[in-house]
């Protein structure tokens, strides 16, 4: 088949840069990647990066926190054919959005972290996921992203098509692996039932409860049931909701449930 050169860019906003590092960690496939695609912008890997140039696929990592971030992602959206939100920060707001929607105040947060009278040379806003600022075509969640899933995304773009988004929870992969359920058998507060699959149920396979690092699945309606189940297993529902909010701070369902619990309904 005819192959055309795919132009790819990686753009960072506010995050830990772990997803970009995970791309560079695909060591045994790096040569294949760099021969198949043309890297236009990847500040972490090459100093010959150009933000201004147009790309076919733009992988944007991180949540939008500063004014510079917003300017950057809007510029990238204009130049890119497809925008992929890379990592949970870009997809769902990430850890920095954990307190959003629950009496969150930016001034208070800054005061707690940096102390009184701290001067910023940039304008800071409450953290937002990418799709609240620009249109996002595809979501590649994970904290950090899975290497195999990233390669799958890149391969589909090379084949001039697009990737299939996972819309099922971690529980499915966990059952496929044949794990005993950590909630039912051990009573641990596992967030697998409403976390997007793709990690191969890494934590439940090791007997640990899922942290929900891949973010909530689309259109979750299981928050009530989850809270009830946690309560049954001896976990305080408010604690459980706080746990859900670590990676799902921008999910409306979680915020609503959280508010109603705080009010004591």
């Amino acid at each position: 088949m005819e192959k055309r050169e795919l132009r790819v860019g990686f753009y960072p906003t506010t995050s830990c840069y772990g997803c970009q590092l995970n791309v560079l960690n695909i060591e045994d496939k790096l040569i294949d990647i760099f021969t198949e695609v043309k890297i236009v912008c990847f500040h972490m890997a090459t100093s010959a990066s150009k933000i201004e140039e147009s790309v076919d696929v733009a992988f944007i990592e991180g949540a939008v926190v500063t004014e510079d971030d917003e300017e950057l992602v809007k510029k990238v959206r204009e130049k890119a054919k497809y925008v992929v939100a890379m990592g949970t920060c870009a997809c769902h707001g990430g850890v920095q959005s954990a307190n959003i929607g629950a009496g969150f105040s930016l001034d208070e947060a800054i005061k707690t972290v940096y102390g009184e009278n701290f001067q910023f040379d940039m304008k800071v806003m409450p953290p937002r996921p990418l799709d609240k600022v620009i249109d996002v075509d595809f979501y590649l969640p994970g904290c950090p992203i899975e290497k195999e899933e990233f390669l799958y995304f890149l391969a589909t773009f090379i084949w001039s098509t697009w990737p299939e988004q996972k819309d099922f929870p971690v529980c499915q992969e966990c059952r496929q692996k044949g794990n005993p359920c950590v909630v039912i058998e051990e009573g641990k507060p596992c967030l697998g039932p409403f976390t997007t699959a793709g990690c191969g149920a890494r934590c439940p396979s090791l007997g640990l409860p899922c942290m929900g690092c891949r973010g909530p699945i689309k259109e979750i309606q299981r928050v009530d049931a989850m809270a009830k189940m946690m309560e049954k297993n001896g976990v305080d529902p408010l604690e459980a909701l706080k746990r859900m909010k670590v990676f799902g701070g921008h999910s409306d369902e979680i915020i609503e449930k959280f508010k109603s619990l705080v009010r004591g309904e």
């Binding site: 088949m1 005819e2 589909t156 084949w159 001039s160 098509t161 697009w162 990737p163 299939e164």
Partner: peptide, 14 residues
């Protein structure tokens, strides 16, 4: 869709 787009890009001999 996703798969038929790729099939349309295939040539004779693929």
């Amino acid at each position: 869709g996703r798969v038929t787009t790729v099939i349309h890009n295939l040539n004779e001999g693929d």
